[in-house]
Design a binder for these strands. Structure first.
Lengths: 199, 199, 199, 199
DNA sequence: CATGAATGAGTCTTCATTCAT
DNA sequence: GATGAATGAAGACTCATTCAT
């Protein structure tokens, strides 16, 4: 099987990552063996090492893709457009609601594992922080602009507010991971009320 | 004299848990060995097994104490007293502020580890959920009462609000674990503004 | 089995080294597994790691003891005594003769393995060179003194001579390892003739 | 046109062997992978197996060529010519001196690896012994003839002397592999003195 | 009770070898 | 013929757990 196309290599790599993500979501990084991941993807253990230097390399890649996806879900709108704040706000509420979807279950569990792993793996930490810091800065700028326009209370520390909104996402993700049946509608309604008061 | 012995046993057990907590906060559950824990407490590995059936037993105990402490910090006021809502609110804000204290650093990191572990250990999950569910119910009652008194907007779903407040705590804990230097004051100010609007 | 005496620890360590030396002599370092060594000593693989950090650590220890023994065999006489040169010479010839002994077989084979391993393991190289360089310097001094006394041809470069004598040992060891039946007597007689001419 | 093809095959095979020799000299047989060898020769791993049955086959081939070269260097003169002894002697000293050349560095290191490998691989052993035994017999004949002519002390066991001379070569090779900066001139001068005495 | 030596199953990772293309 | 992707059997090393002393 000589020289496979780059396309195929990329796809294969992604298959492995997807299989690994399922394993990690189920059992955590440390209870998942390379054999588990290989079996989940229908490959041999040795092959995994043609795509990743070691297990940590895979975990870092998983964490990177996870953060990337989060950023995309949040910022798929053009943040420089007029009315961007409103778009971002509705995007944010949509992100919260998306946590209720069964299809997101694994991803949410995976996220919690990444948060914990970031505390002891410098590589994962770097990836995880980058994924949070970058959106944070973009959003802080949006908030500041809105405050200057008078669309938002001026006595709100922008960075503080952003972190609270991130926390509201993170906490919901965590609580959903623990209890998939929680009332997401009630949660989002409460958030809407809190946010609505600010204008 | 079983009483003295009991006392001693309890103290010894607590020493082990404290050493384990330090290790777990530093390196996570899976990168911490029983040998590490024994060394940290100045005991022998064999002795650990007189106090805990196995490693998971220790993790569950650690998780239990962690949740217990959180509940105490939040609910140290008498929630049935008149004006309890205000007391609880200020207790809540104090809890948020306490995350800035260096002495809390390890405990915060430990908390994140517990959240992740709860996803794959039924025992830890049971302990962790109990620690969240119990306060949640108490607080939900408080909120309902406040709404009936007209002290709080009636269109807020009590359970949703509580979960949001818990999330605001969880998210701050997570963000603090990642970046101890974040601006806790700005965070708490933002929370105060958000909460202040509700009355 | 708590706290075993230092004596016992040392003895146990030596047992492991002896078993390892047998394995290494038989199959070389790279074809010998830790399991082989453990089995040879009647221990579990895990226990080996209480005595040695890793496989290389064991190889280095083996190499160290090997060199030490060589130095002792060669220099068991008091090199500062008058007539030391003659003693050392007869010690040297005895060392050559000892290679004929069946009991030395394994050790000789082990030596050849060490020589090769020294080429690619800095740790083994350091140990091996030290074991050769130290005796070399002592003997160079002896030679120089003999030349000053007129007991030895003055046109012989001392360092060159020493290295030749070491080579005569090394080469015999190698040839013995390959062919245990070679005629050691003839070899030693030839050496005696060569050396005898020098005075 | 099988002849051209044969030529090509032979050349390709030799390229692989040369690349392998460089790898083996650098890292030893067991730390060199087939992938390393393929990369060093700019070929694919699979192709290696069209020229060699397995790794051991390559090692044996390398050992064979190494011994062949040694024999050539030593016996490039016509040993049946009158005065052959003197020619062989000067060829021998030249062989010793050649070990000082940087270009010989890799080959010398490779030689030491072969010596060790011969102890555990019957195939390598056969090749290595053949490479030593054949010249040994030729030279023993020369010595005997010289003794009969009275050109050499009669009380020297021919086989012993030859083995000593081989040892003087082997030991120098080993010491050079360990320490390329040793004083080869002093070494050869010492050998000349030792040999010179014999006539 | 306490110790810490001992165990051995389990995990990551490597690499000689094969074979579909 | 040539490629290099794929395999999977080892092998080094770890560590939760046990138990003789």
């Amino acid at each position: 099987m000589p020289k496979v196309s780059d396309e195929h290599l990329r796809a294969r790599r992604q298959e492995i990552l997807d299989g690994a993500a399922r394993c990690f979501a189920r059992a955590g990084f440390h209870r998942t063996t390379i054999q588990d991941i290989a079996a989940e993807s229908g490959l041999s253990p040795g092959l995994v090492y043609r795509y990743f230097a070691d297990k940590e390399d895979m975990v870092a890649a998983i964490a990177g893709q996870w953060q990337e996806r989060r950023a995309e879900q949040l910022l798929h709108t053009d943040v420089r457009a007029p009315g961007a704040l409103g778009d971002v706000a509705s995007g944010y509420l949509g992100l919260l609601r998306s946590l209720a979807e069964p299809a997101e279950r694994d991803r949410t569990r995976l996220g919690v594992q990444i948060w914990a792993e970031a505390l002891r793996s410098p590589r994962v930490q770097a990836v995880a922080r980058e994924g949070v810091d970058a959106p944070r800065e973009v959003l802080t700028g949006l908030i500041r602009a809105a405050q200057e326009r008078g669309d938002l209370r001026a006595d709100l520390p922008p960075d503080g507010l952003i972190r609270v909104l991130i926390a509201i996402y993170q906490g919901l993700a965590l609580q959903t991971a623990w209890d998939a049946d929680l009332d997401h509608d009630a949660y989002v309604r409460a958030v809407e009320v809190l946010i609505g008061e600010l204008t």
